[in-house]
Each structure stands twice: as structure tokens, then as C-alpha cells.
Amino acid sequence: MSFTRDVEADRIIKGLIAINVVVFVFGLMRQVPNMGGEPVPLPMVYGSYSFEDCFDLGEYWRLITYQFVHADMGHILFNMIALWIFGRAVCSMMGAFRFLLFYLGCGVVGALFSSLLMSQGLCMREELAALSEYIPFWKMIPMVGASGSIYGVIAAAAVMFPYARVALWFPPIEMSVRTFALVVLAVALVVIAMNWNNAGGEAGHLGGMLCGFAVMGIWVLYRKLTWNRR
């Protein structure tokens, strides 16, 4: 995708990427043992989201902090590349403040949507659901990553720039942003429906993307109404 350079948008996106990278590097340098004695990055311990930590224990900040914590190098690399490609264009259209609210809001909705589906017995294997006798296991499943936020940004880009072209590295093909958004949406739906590996994570992706489409739908409707009044 190629768009007119927007200095403010570049600064916002670079800032978000920098925060994610700093948190990831800090997690590599500072780890603590979990209950099994295995080392876990400190940001993942205090920044990941789970329904139990957030709502049962009242640690509501996790709805925001989990969006800046990543599991491994591949996870953060994919997310930051997608944020750079799509985020600058969307931010330049929305403006910095509205973009940040939109970005973080999609991440919050993604986490809540994942918890909602898991609470209904979706996105979780039956053998995991029976692990805890006292607390429903779905409440304890941790979630990390900016994917829900970024999927919302992809949805916004698909509405704003539907015919812009994006070139994929793997597979090496080119498609419109709208087609790309529909493909990743379809992948999330299939993974959730088949309850494949990381179905809970895909539910977060789906929630973020649905939030993005919903907000953009309201935006389009608002523009049409205001235009008709002129």
C-alpha cells in the first residue's frame, strides 16, 4: 500500500511500535518463574489479559496492557509489520487522538469477545474445560498481543481504501485491501467454527475486526447523513 506521507501518523505508529518492542525486549531480559518453575516474561505475568485477572480480581488495566505484550518474535514481527502497513493510512484519515481510541478500543472488544465465546463453550477444547474444578478454565486462559487492535485497523483500511493493493510475502500474491480483510475474516471464522488450535486467539482477532467494521459503518452512515443535510 502506498499513501501520501503523513508525519503525524508516522509518529503515532512509530510510537506504538516502539512501545511494543521495548516491552518485548524487557520481557526477554526480565523473566520470573511460573508455578511450574519455567521462566515467563515479566510483562506477560502482569500485563496479559484473562477474565479472572481482569474482572474477578479487578485488574482492569490488563484490557489495555495485554495489547502491548507478545508471545514470541514471530508474533510481534507480524503484528508490527501489519500495524506499519495499515496503521499509517488509517491514522492519517482519523487523526491521532481518534485513531488511538479506535486502536485501543478494538483491542478491548477483541479480548471481551474472546471471553464471551469461550464462556459459551466455544474456542476451547473439552479436555481443557475440565481442568479446573472450582474456577471455569476459560476464565484463566491468558491473552496477549496487538492482533485484535490491528485487525480492527485492517477493517478500517478495507472501508477507507477498499481498492488499494497490498502485496503479501507468503503466499507472494497481490490483492485489494478489501479482499485481504475478507480473507483474514474468513480464516478467523473457520478456525473458530472448527475449534482448531488458537481458536481463542482468533476469536480476539474476530472481535477486533467486527469492532472495526462496526465503527466504520457508523462513520460512513454519519458522513452520508451530514452530506445529505448540505
Rank of each mutant, 00 (worst) to 15 (best):
Ala158Gly: 08
Phe180Arg: 05
Val90His: 08
Val69Met: 05
Ile76Arg: 02
Arg178Thr: 11
Ala167Ile: 12
Ile154Phe: 04
Gly58Met: 03
Ala167Val: 14
Ile154Cys: 06
Pro162Ser: 10
Ser147Gly: 12
Ile64Tyr: 07
Ile135Asp: 07
Ser115Gly: 13
Ile64Asp: 02
Phe97Pro: 00
Trp61Arg: 05
Ala156Asn: 03
Leu104Arg: 02
Met143Lys: 10
Ile135Val: 15
Ile173Leu: 14
Ile173Val: 15
Thr65Arg: 00
Phe68Thr: 06
Leu185Asn: 01
Gly58Lys: 00
Ile141Phe: 09
Val90Trp: 02
Ser92Asp: 01
Gly110Pro: 01
Lys139Asn: 09
Leu117Lys: 09
Leu77Phe: 10
Met160His: 07
Leu63Ser: 09
Leu131Ile: 15
Leu83Ser: 10
Ala158Thr: 02
Ala188Asp: 09
Met160Ile: 13
Met140Pro: 00
Ala89Glu: 00
Met140Arg: 11
Arg178Ala: 15
Gly105Phe: 03
Met124Arg: 06
Ile81His: 09
Ile76Phe: 04
Ser149Asp: 03
Leu100Asp: 00
Ala82Thr: 13
Ser119Gln: 14
Arg62Tyr: 02
His70Asp: 06
Phe97Ile: 12
Leu122Asn: 09
Glu174Cys: 12
Gln67Leu: 14
Val109Phe: 13
Ser132Met: 13
Thr179His: 12
Tyr163Asp: 14
Leu122Thr: 11
Ser149Arg: 02
Tyr66Arg: 06
Leu168Ile: 10
Leu77Ser: 08
Glu59Gly: 05
Ile154Tyr: 03
Trp61His: 11
Leu77Pro: 01
Ile173Ser: 13
Phe161Ser: 05
Met93Glu: 12
Leu116Glu: 10
Gly74Leu: 03
Pro171Glu: 12
Phe180Pro: 04
Arg62Leu: 10
Ser149Gln: 13
Phe161Val: 06
